[in-house]
């Protein structure tokens, strides 16, 4: 395990693997994306309550899931780099944060657009929307902290502490907001929570979730590779790659 982590953490090894990985991830992403879009926009029948507006779910839900998932990535890679001082996880955390913030923004904006026909207003102080908004603030704080340091290594480790505190806080934030919103406006009508989601609706959703996840991996790999090149620009293998 220990040896594996260090091998995986070696920039050259990671660079080589990520080139292979990138190809496959991109293919899976494109296939799932096209399949999910076709299934979601064309094949899936209109919802009997929400009509065609429910089709927003196919971008909204994957984005919302990814926003949380990437925050978990920030925290875990932060923990790894605090414990083992591995460069790769520093880089992964740094390049993931803006992607996560963009997904959070996406989840919020599509949620607001969806809210207009469903709730009649763009914004309701619903527990999920509110905690998603706070999550966006957490991302922005993380990015701001990272960019305040000149030394990338210190920035990564400071960010790691912030992300770990954030990840402990997220359940508390979510619970507090839920507590508060039930007190304020009564449980919101969540028509989307109907457990009986039809298979023709569910399969495109799963495809889109896979597509978003692989999209994130693909982008993170590209960004990580260029950061590795910057870090290791004096080593011989980088010169060899650039020489070709």
């Amino acid at each position: 395990m220990y040896k594996w982590i260090h091998q995986f953490g070696s920039p050259k090894y990671f660079y080589d693997i990520s080139l292979h990985l990138s190809k496959w991830v991109t293919i899976v992403c494109i296939v799932c994306f096209i399949g999910g879009l076709y299934g979601g926009l064309v094949l899936a029948p209109a919802d009997y309550q929400q009509g065609d507006s429910f089709r927003i779910i196919y971008v909204h839900v994957p984005a919302a899931w990814m926003s949380l998932f990437i925050y978990v990535i920030l925290a875990t890679s932060g923990a790894i780099s605090l414990i083992w001082h591995i460069k790769i996880t520093d880089i992964i955390a740094r390049v993931s944060a803006p992607i996560g913030a963009s997904f959070t923004f996406l989840a919020l904006s599509t949620g607001a657009i969806w809210g207009k026909p469903m709730w009649g207003t763009y914004w309701v102080w619903d527990a999920r929307l509110t905690s998603e908004l706070i999550l966006l603030f957490l991302y922005l704080g993380y990015i701001a902290l990272q960019s305040a340091f000149d030394d990338k290594r210190i920035a990564a480790r400071a960010g790691a502490i912030l992300a770990l505190i954030g990840i402990i806080n997220i359940p508390i934030i979510h619970y507090s907001v839920e507590w508060w919103s039930t007190l304020h406006q009564g449980p919101t009508i969540t028509k989307l929570d109907k457990p009986s989601i039809h298979l023709t609706m569910l399969i495109p959703l799963i495809l889109m979730v896979i597509a978003f996840k692989t999209f994130y991996i693909a982008i993170a790999l590209i960004k990580t590779r260029s950061e590795i090149l910057k870090y290791e620009c004096n080593s011989s293998w980088v010169k060899k790659i650039l020489g070709n």
Binding site: L140, L145, G166, V177
Partner: peptide, 15 residues
């Protein structure tokens, strides 16, 4: 920066 970091994290207490 300090305020930017503290305020979101202290929301549960406030709520």
């Amino acid at each position: 920066l300090l305020n930017l970091l503290i305020l979101p994290l202290s929301m549960p207490v406030l709520i």
